[in-house]
């Protein structure tokens, strides 16, 4: 089936930058109440730069892989990149398959494109991204805000 791309399996088995680290500015815990998947996610921010994103994730391959891709994509990046990426991921995942995703923007997370066709799994893929948005909100940053270039 097209859902379980190699990249998803790889990320889920060897999640990148997994584990909770210090220092951090904000920590959140998100749960998917329908299946019990959980993530604890921390962000450390230096001005506009996301210096560290660390996490502990317990869940299905889709939710763990998505967290791993998030950490790989956004660690060391600036907030504008984070906003772009977040918007692109959300658009792809919630498009029911109409937005195929742009690999240049979302990197390995392009492998999650197939998830959009399984409404029950979209929440799995979004779990870490929602956690990131809330963690950043705790530091005073709105991830959904349009960036003003």
């Amino acid at each position: 089936m097209d859902l379980y791309q190699e990249l998803i399996i790889d990320h889920s088995k060897r999640p990148i930058r997994m584990g909770l680290r210090e220092p951090f500015d904000a920590e959140v815990h998100h749960v998917n109440p329908t299946c019990g998947d959980e993530i604890t996610l921390r962000v450390d921010r230096d001005g506009e730069t996301l210096t560290d994103i660390s996490y502990d994730s317990l869940g299905c391959s889709i939710s763990v892989a998505s967290a791993s891709m998030l950490a790989e994509l956004l660690t060391g990046e600036d907030l504008d990149t984070a906003r772009h990426t977040y918007a692109a991921i959300r658009s792809m995942l919630t498009s029911k398959g109409e937005d195929p995703g742009d690999e240049d923007v979302i990197g390995d997370a392009i492998a999650l494109a197939g998830v959009a066709k399984y409404p029950a799994r979209v929440k799995c893929a979004l779990l870490s991204w929602m956690a990131l948005a809330e963690a950043l909100a705790k530091t005073g940053v709105n991830l959904s805000e349009e960036s003003h270039d």
Partner: peptide, 10 residues
């Protein structure tokens, strides 16, 4: 080694 969600999906 496989989450139930993934088992169910297969």
């Amino acid at each position: 080694g496989v989450h139930a969600h993934d088992v169910g999906q297969i």
